[in-house]
Computed example of a mutant assay.
Amino acid sequence: MSTSNPLAALSEAGVSVWLDDLSRERMESGNLASLIRDHHVVGVTTNPTIFAAALAKGESYDAQVRELAERGASVDQTVREITTTDVRTACDVFRDLWERTNGLDGRVSIEVDPRLAHDTEGTVAEALELWKTVDRPNLMVKIPATVEGLPAITRVLAEGVSVNVTLIFSVERYRAVMDAFLAGLEQARTKGHDPARIASVASFFVSRVDTEVDKRLGELGSAEAEALRGEAAIANARLAFVAYEEVFAGERWQALADAGARPQRPLWASTGVKDPAYSDTRYVDELVTAGVVNTMPEKTLFAVADHGEVRGDTVRGTGEQAKQVFDRLAAAGVDLDDVFAVLEREGVEKFDKSWTELLDTVTEQLEQAKD
């Protein structure tokens, strides 16, 4: 395993490095191509926050906005055109990599409108429309793992659409996501789709768990609570991997695997470190194992390239230790069920707010283009 290049070592350990960012400027400047070439990036994820930031700066979108304004496009239509154009272009950038890895990587994700997070029918309709509009085989449509999102995941997969399930915080919800995935592939087979052509990842959020749990530990103020700071997120992800190994060793999965299906890979999301007291590569170094994805903001990607510590597999075999951390958190007075409920609600609200900001930015740009 390479030690001089931590990103290379990460790839050699079986972790797919995806970038948690996309903008037209990044693609037009050749930056994305250089990250693929020089920094082992093999996929990209997007979300409403990323698109809102991309549109708020630079001039890369001005010409398209002017053209859409002249056509009389609505704000929603303009947002759809801009985001799907970027994602389609990114899919093309990654197409060769997608083909070389036989469809494993080279993936680009686009998220359904977060205002639909609690609307099953609306999510299904939008996911299918996004798949049709982008029209690229290496696309993944992101669907949140809300209670209402679970049946949408199954129904969209059943139509042969590749899905990135997002906003997963608890192992309990993750198990429901894996069940929705299996049901979707089973239905896809019944409808005549080749399961080998359907890909999925399950985005398990990491750093936000420590942010919320550490806040509660600080309020408890005990020595035991203080000793548990920074332990929850990694333990949670490792317990998720235990669940993954259980489900994808079962008979139900084996029947799909025999038909050519590939497992829904765990994806570590929200891996940028929020607390400066922790190493800025913590949520990469401590979650290394073969067969997973780690999607990183550019800042984290460069930190890993500079001083990441890839020490081999840091996930398999850690389940019992992770369970002990959760037992100690509960004994210290942390209500983990409430933590996960709060994080899901806040996650939906944050994306909803970013979507509103995106709409406001586009509204302003359309008005300026008409002047």
Results as ranks from 00 to 15, higher is better:
residue 180 A to V: 14
residue 324 Q to Y: 00
residue 4 S to Q: 13
residue 288 V to P: 05
residue 85 T to D: 09
residue 288 V to Q: 05
residue 216 R to Y: 04
residue 108 V to C: 07
residue 34 S to F: 04
residue 158 A to E: 03
residue 96 D to V: 14
residue 286 E to R: 09
residue 182 L to E: 13
residue 131 W to M: 04
residue 229 R to E: 01
residue 126 E to C: 10
residue 125 A to L: 05
residue 25 E to F: 01
residue 15 V to K: 01
residue 347 G to W: 03
residue 274 K to L: 03
residue 89 T to A: 13
residue 151 P to R: 07
residue 304 V to M: 09
residue 321 Q to D: 11
residue 45 T to D: 01
residue 93 V to P: 02
residue 71 R to A: 15
residue 350 K to Y: 10
residue 324 Q to W: 00
residue 135 D to I: 03
residue 33 A to C: 05
residue 159 E to Y: 01
residue 70 E to F: 10
residue 209 V to P: 02
residue 96 D to Y: 10
residue 24 R to H: 02
residue 165 V to K: 14
residue 171 V to E: 08
residue 365 Q to L: 11
residue 193 H to K: 11
residue 320 E to M: 04
residue 253 W to V: 01
residue 144 P to H: 01
residue 222 S to F: 09
residue 50 I to F: 03
residue 61 Y to L: 12
residue 142 K to D: 01
residue 159 E to V: 02
residue 133 T to M: 13
residue 276 P to I: 03
residue 311 R to Y: 02
residue 128 L to E: 08
residue 179 D to F: 00
residue 267 L to K: 05
residue 173 R to G: 03
residue 1 M to D: 06
residue 126 E to Y: 13
residue 334 V to D: 05
residue 47 N to K: 14
residue 331 A to F: 02
residue 162 S to E: 02
residue 29 S to F: 07
residue 55 L to H: 13
residue 156 V to S: 07
residue 119 D to A: 12
residue 323 K to T: 15
residue 141 V to A: 11
residue 163 V to S: 08
residue 174 Y to N: 07
residue 287 L to C: 02
residue 251 E to A: 15
residue 164 N to W: 06
residue 184 G to L: 02
residue 59 E to H: 15
residue 255 A to V: 12
residue 90 A to T: 01
residue 112 V to P: 11
residue 248 F to H: 06
residue 75 V to A: 01
residue 272 G to A: 13
residue 145 A to Y: 00
residue 346 E to L: 14
residue 244 Y to R: 06
residue 208 R to E: 02
residue 240 A to F: 14
residue 257 A to W: 14
residue 99 E to L: 10
residue 99 E to Y: 01
residue 218 G to A: 11
residue 132 K to Y: 12
residue 344 E to V: 08
residue 363 T to Q: 15
residue 265 R to N: 09
residue 362 V to R: 05
residue 282 R to V: 05
residue 319 G to W: 10
residue 162 S to Y: 02
residue 32 L to R: 07
residue 286 E to C: 13
residue 201 V to Y: 04
residue 150 L to W: 04
residue 99 E to V: 04
residue 144 P to G: 10
residue 220 L to T: 04
residue 197 R to I: 01
residue 111 E to G: 05
residue 259 A to D: 12
residue 9 A to E: 05
residue 186 E to N: 10
residue 261 A to Y: 06
residue 33 A to H: 10
residue 57 K to M: 08
residue 250 G to P: 04
residue 226 E to N: 12
residue 200 S to A: 14
residue 315 V to T: 05
residue 233 A to F: 10
residue 219 E to Y: 00
residue 203 S to E: 02
residue 170 S to K: 08
residue 243 A to E: 09
residue 84 T to A: 11
residue 357 E to I: 03
residue 17 V to A: 08
residue 246 E to C: 03
residue 39 H to C: 03
residue 250 G to V: 03
residue 250 G to I: 04
residue 42 V to W: 00
residue 211 T to W: 00
residue 38 D to A: 13
residue 115 R to A: 13
residue 175 R to W: 00
residue 48 P to C: 11
residue 314 T to R: 13
residue 270 S to N: 06
residue 264 Q to I: 02
residue 149 G to F: 00
residue 257 A to Y: 09
residue 338 D to R: 10
residue 371 D to Y: 04
residue 253 W to I: 02
